[in-house]
């Protein structure tokens, strides 16, 4: 049973990361602006960070999907989600009105977005801790 739950968690995360990257890739300039609006990074680093985030999403998603380096991939995904959660939280605490940029579009960042990211951390940590289930 646990193996199947871990497999489901792994595939869910793979889908989430790949979908998130797919929504950003057609318009990276807009995603860079979304990243800038978090006001965490010097402007010169923003386009580099935006590119890196999408690349990590793709690599982590593919690794989770293919079952390669499962636990390292889940750990990287968990760290990315923790980074997102921290970035969102500091922006909300500072009263910055921004779109989250999570899945393209113009969805506003709210505390519900933070809760969603925290919820996704659970399967990521589980896979990082225990591995990815049925076809390890």
């Amino acid at each position: 049973m646990i193996r199947w739950l871990l497999l489901a968690a792994r595939l869910f995360l793979a889908g989430i990361f790949l979908w998130a990257a797919a929504t950003k890739l057609p318009d990276m300039a807009t995603f860079a602006t979304d990243v800038a609006n978090y006001r965490l990074l010097p402007p010169a680093l923003v386009p580099w960070a935006a590119s890196a985030v999408v690349g990590v999403e793709v690599v982590v998603g593919l690794a989770l999907l293919a079952g390669v380096w499962l636990r390292p991939a889940a750990l990287a995904g968990a760290l990315l989600l923790a980074f997102f959660t921290g970035g969102l939280s500091q922006a909300l605490l500072r009263g910055i009105d921004l779109t989250c940029g999570c899945f393209g579009g113009n969805d506003p960042a709210t505390w519900l977005t933070v809760v969603r990211d925290l919820a996704m951390l659970v399967p990521a940590v589980a896979v990082a801790w225990r591995g990815g289930g049925a076809n390890r």
Binding site: A21, L25, P26, D27, M28, A29, T30, F31, A32, V46, P47, W48, A50, S51, A52, V53, V54, G55, V56, E57, V58, V59, V60, A76
Partner: peptide
């Protein structure tokens, strides 16, 4: 992933 992201950005229709 970060390195791959730079290549993906370059291939984007609207790159940063």
């Amino acid at each position: 992933g970060a390195a791959a992201g730079l290549a993906m950005n370059a291939a984007s229709p609207r790159p940063a």
